[in-house]
């Protein structure tokens, strides 16, 4: 468990050191409260690592458990669900870390913080929906793991996880809300940094993405399921 958070923490430190020198000086104080960049980065990057972990684990959930699937009449969902649960535990650890970090900065939890576990859970549900499809397809196309690894990296840089949103040119900023992870990210930041409850639009957006991901995931899984064990 220690090693699971060791890697993201180390990266977090690197990002904080590097971006504090390069990026932060150019940010105006009305965008980001001076001295809070480490918090801004943590609340974006740490949940992201948990999300990415869920995606990768889920993609490999069926192939990695081929030994069981070939021999035991267990439903595929057991293994997909198991990997989602495992990564959700990682997400909970991240929330605890964030809480500790904010204490260090002398900030105390507000009532709005109750929304954080809910947002984190929705984010995981969104990831689970994607892994239903990814895990199933990976059985037939084994290169998918590599592809997902690359795409997750690109995806991370397509949203303001480590950098500050306001630095983006307006054209790019205008398409950001269409990025599926954007509402999750923004909601967490809003609660964590400003202590305000996310507005209804964000809740609706999150719910919509979760529903869409689960629906598509279920559809794909349903479509290919009869052949999964033949191909394992």
């Amino acid at each position: 468990m220690l090693w699971n958070i060791g890697m993201p923490l180390a990266l977090l430190v690197v990002y904080v050191v590097v971006f504090s020198a390069v990026l932060v000086p150019s940010i105006s104080p009305d965008v980001l409260e001076p001295g809070t960049f480490p918090l801004y980065l943590s609340v974006g990057f740490l949940p992201w690592t948990a999300f990415a972990d869920t995606l990768l684990r889920g993609t490999q959930a069926l192939v990695g458990n081929a030994a069981y699937l070939r021999r035991l009449p267990l439903p595929e969902r057991v293994f997909l669900g198991q990997s989602a649960v495992a990564s959700t535990i990682g997400m909970l650890v991240v929330l605890v870390l964030l809480w500790l970090l904010s204490l260090v900065w002398g900030r105390f939890p507000t009532l709005a913080w109750l929304a954080m576990p809910v947002v984190a859970f929705l984010w995981q549900a969104f990831a689970y929906g994607l892994t239903l499809a990814l895990g199933a397809l990976n059985v037939f196309f084994r290169d998918l793991t590599q592809l997902v690894t690359i795409l997750v990296q690109i995806w991370m840089w397509s949203v303001p996880v480590v950098y500050v949103e306001q630095l983006l040119p307006d054209t790019l900023r205008s398409v950001l809300p269409f990025n599926p992870v954007y509402p999750f990210l923004t909601s967490l930041r809003m609660v964590y940094l400003q202590g305000t409850f996310p507005p209804v639009e964000l809740w609706l957006a999150m719910a919509a993405w979760v529903a869409l991901a689960v629906l598509v995931g279920e559809l794909v899984l349903h479509l290919v399921q009869p052949e999964i064990r033949d191909a394992l």
Partner: peptide, 13 residues
């Protein structure tokens, strides 16, 4: 033979 067993134990549809 193995396929038959897998059908019986429900591993294969």
């Amino acid at each position: 033979k193995s396929t038959l067993l897998k059908l019986i134990s429900g591993v294969l549809p």
